[in-house]
Write a protein that binds this DNA or RNA. Structure first.
Length: 709
DNA sequence: CTCTCGCCTGTTTTT
DNA sequence: CAGGCGAGAG
């Protein structure tokens, strides 16, 4: 194919990004500038114009869904299947490498992937064993600390060498034991998936060379959100051919808390000699008004490449700011606008999204939308595959495939109850660890005299059930169906007759139908292994259907990479968006601001911001003031509705701070009170007050709303 | 071993 | 306010 023919729908910058195929290329792509398009065309160009075989291309995207779409679109351009192309998330691609190279890492190809919940359980168990029950860092904190070490490719041994006295040195044995336990269970966590591949490549030149030679072209999307391990992986994989294109936008880097390093995108030209830089600055997504606001927001950040998005779009209308009395008013107010859009303006619910900072905010919108009879879908939160009944079923599958998986064993051996209680499981774990034999093997081989008789017979039944089901593992659906019947799990749910039981039963049937769908769509490999590999790495957005005919509800993080005609950004309050934690940490604050920028740039034409003057959190009524990000938007760029905006928007940037602990204060409608605590300084200070009249215990307030008495 | 009650803590965001 | 966890009874 002629390249002009393929590239006729791209702008000159995009074309440059596509046809620069040799050597390292850094594409700095602003929001809505067509970077996905560029990548899609580049895939097509490589195959169709340059004649590169699809199997020598390695492309990463942020979700597996995005990968599927990009591949499908590229196939349409090419006019044929891109067979054997490696495209997916870092995790799924590394998973594939690991299955092939498992042996070199002391794993078998049937290894289990532990999700965050699994790894937290494991950390808890280990901390109990190591008598760290009352350790000052919570298991959750330890788990995320370990995760952050892995993101930086720090092994337990290396950590041991650099750990400082104090809590770090206490984490060393937990990390060591955690890795050992994973290894014993023939399991990896999310971080291992990347880290192991990097270690493998570093340690084994033969294997490294084989993979690096195989992939002639590496493409990385959302490069601003890669962590150190992923960066290293890109370097290693591209070491032979050196043809690597990375695409990203430093203004949209929102995963710093997960180890993403902005400097990856800044350092790239230094690490990759001869990098060509392409900038995409024309926005095709939003109207001019929206883009002006977006630019006004992001220019307050200091850590960024200077760039200016421009567009040829129509002006559009001003984004609106609505101020509501409380979060319920916000919910019903937004839903009212949505129902007007749908009923009066004929907008499809597909084109509408409500975005928020935290998942907990979704509930009120759900209630209001249900009341208004507007169909909606919630993305994220506790996803389907994280529900306990689903995780139980998956644990059965995992154990069937990988008998060494001790965590899954412990999860389900007594579900439904088989007389194997906590202490029996603990004994088994001890025995298994000391003899170096997986728990399941221990149970199958038989000498369990150290357990109560009831537990022994329960285990016997359990083992024979698993052994029996093993024979069916070539077809997930068949196996799962039999599993559900034979375990009596549904019967157990029916009998407990809790309010949620019915829903949980339905979920199990839904899992069955997902297994059925998998079987149908993978006729060549219907195995449990394949199913688990797919399901374990699903993201919340993977379960989102853009054509569902429903309004979408999701966090701003989940919305990355998506776009909607009409967008509501809710809860723009100080302490919520930006989160209170970011208040005094400029780096965090800038990330929150980028998040706000991401939220804004999801919108094509109709944008509504909102916040509530009061909001309940942890059972307390909190008094809120507008997010500082709203103040950063010049007033003439916003259409403010809701009356009390001046109250919220117009306070002085004063220097003096007139309140101290114990000051007596007066609030316009809560009366007199006494200051208990002050966090922060200046206009951002949050003051906790004990009010006399109401007997309300605590209220967090912006001090500007208080008068000193 | 199992179940229930009551206490305590605390979530941002997700592969 | 909610969910998770531990203690204590059956």
């Amino acid at each position: 194919m002629k390249s002009e023919e393929l590239l006729k729908d791209l702008n000159p910058d995009q074309i440059k990004g596509v046809i620069e195929t040799e050597g390292p290329v850094l594409v700095l792509a602003g929001a809505g500038s067509g970077k996905t398009r560029l990548l899609t065309y580049k895939l097509a160009y490589l195959v169709k114009v340059l004649g590169i075989p699809a199997y020598s291309i390695f492309a990463t995207t942020f979700t597996n869904k995005a990968a599927g779409e990009m591949k499908a679109r590229a196939e349409r351009l090419v006019g044929g299947a891109l067979k054997g192309m490696w495209i997916g998330t870092f995790h799924s691609l590394c998973g594939r490498i690991l299955r092939i190279e498992a042996e070199a890492l002391g794993l078998t190809p049937e290894f289990t992937i532990y999700d965050e919940d699994d790894s937290l359980r494991l950390v808890k168990q280990i901390m109990r064993e190591l008598k760290l029950d009352n350790f000052k860092v919570s298991p959750r904190g330890v788990a995320s600390y370990i995760s952050s070490l892995k993101e930086k490719l720090i092994t337990p041994e290396e950590f041991n060498a650099i750990a400082m006295k104090g809590f770090e040195s206490e984490i060393v044995p937990v990390y060591k034991e955690y890795q050992a336990a994973l290894q014993r269970s023939n399991a990896v966590d999310f971080d291992d998936m990347i880290m192991y591949v990097v270690y493998l490549f570093r340690q084994n030149e033969e294997i490294h060379h084989r993979w690096a030679s195989r992939f002639q072209y590496i493409l990385v999307d959302e490069f601003q959100d890669t962590n150190r391990a992923q960066y290293e992986l890109v370097k290693l994989l591209s070491a032979v051919h050196r043809n690597v294109t990375v695409v990203g936008d430093d203004d949209q880097s929102i995963y710093g808390w997960r180890g993403a390093e902005i400097r990856n995108i800044l350092n790239f030209p230094n690490d990759f000699q001869g990098t060509k830089i392409v900038k995409l600055e024309q926005n095709y997504r939003s109207t001019r008004r929206i883009l002006e606001v977006a630019n006004a927001i992001v220019k307050n950040n200091s850590m960024r490449h200077e760039k200016r998005l421009w567009c040829n779009s129509e002006d559009g209308s001003l984004p609106t700011l609505n101020i509501y009395q409380n979060e319920y008013e916000e919910g019903s107010g937004i839903v009212k606008i949505i129902s007007r859009l749908i009923n009066d303006n004929g907008v499809s619910p597909n084109n509408i999204a409500i975005l928020y900072r935290t998942n907990a905010q979704s509930r009120i919108f759900e209630e209001e939308l249900r009341r208004a009879n507007i169909p909606y879908q919630v993305v994220g939160g506790i996803s389907f595959y994280q529900r306990s009944e689903i995780k139980d079923m998956l644990a059965y599958l995992k154990l069937i495939v990988n008998p060494k998986d001790n965590l899954s064993f412990a999860r389900i051996v007594n579900l439904p109850p088989r007389g194997v209680g906590k202490s029996s499981i603990q004994k088994l774990e001890k025995e298994s660890a000391s003899r170096g034999i997986p728990i399941f093997t221990l149970c199958r081989e038989g000498q369990l005299d150290f357990l109560p008789r009831l537990a022994q017979s329960g285990i016997k039944n359990f083992v024979s059930l698993i052994e029996e089901l093993k024979g069916k593992k070539d077809d997930v659906y068949v196996l799962l169906k039999e599993l559900v019947e034979k375990t009596g799990y549904i019967k157990m749910l029916e009998e407990e007759a809790e309010p949620e039981s019915e829903e949980r039963i339905e979920n199990i049937y839904e899992l069955l139908s997902s297994a059925y769908a998998f079987s149908e769509s993978h006729p060549e490999d219907r195995s449990v292994e394949g199913y688990l590999a797919e399901v374990s790495l699903l993201t919340s957005v993977d379960q989102w259907d853009p054509n569902s005919g429903r309004v979408s509800l999701m966090t701003v993080h989940s919305a990355k990479g998506l776009e909607f005609e009409y967008v509501f950004v809710a809860g723009l309050e100080h302490g919520l968006f930006p989160l209170a934690k970011a208040e005094f940490d400029n780096e965090l604050l800038e990330e929150e601001r980028r998040l706000f920028y991401v939220a804004t740039t999801r919108c094509k034409r109709g944008l509504w911001y909102s916040y509530a003057l009061t909001r309940r959190m942890h059972g307390n009524e909190n008094f809120c003031k507008a997010s500082q990000f709203l103040e950063e938007i010049p007033k003439e760029l916003l259409n403010v509705e809701g009356g009390s905006c001046d109250f919220a928007l117009q306070y002085e940037r004063d220097a003096d701070f007139p309140i101290s602990v114990n000051s007596r204060v007066l609030h316009p409608f809560f009366g007199f009170g006494r200051v208990l605590e002050i966090r922060g300084r200046g206009k951002n200070a949050i003051v906790t007050v004990l009010f006399e009249k109401f007997g309300i215990k605590k209220l967090a307030l912006a001090f500007t709303e208080l008068e000193i008495v």
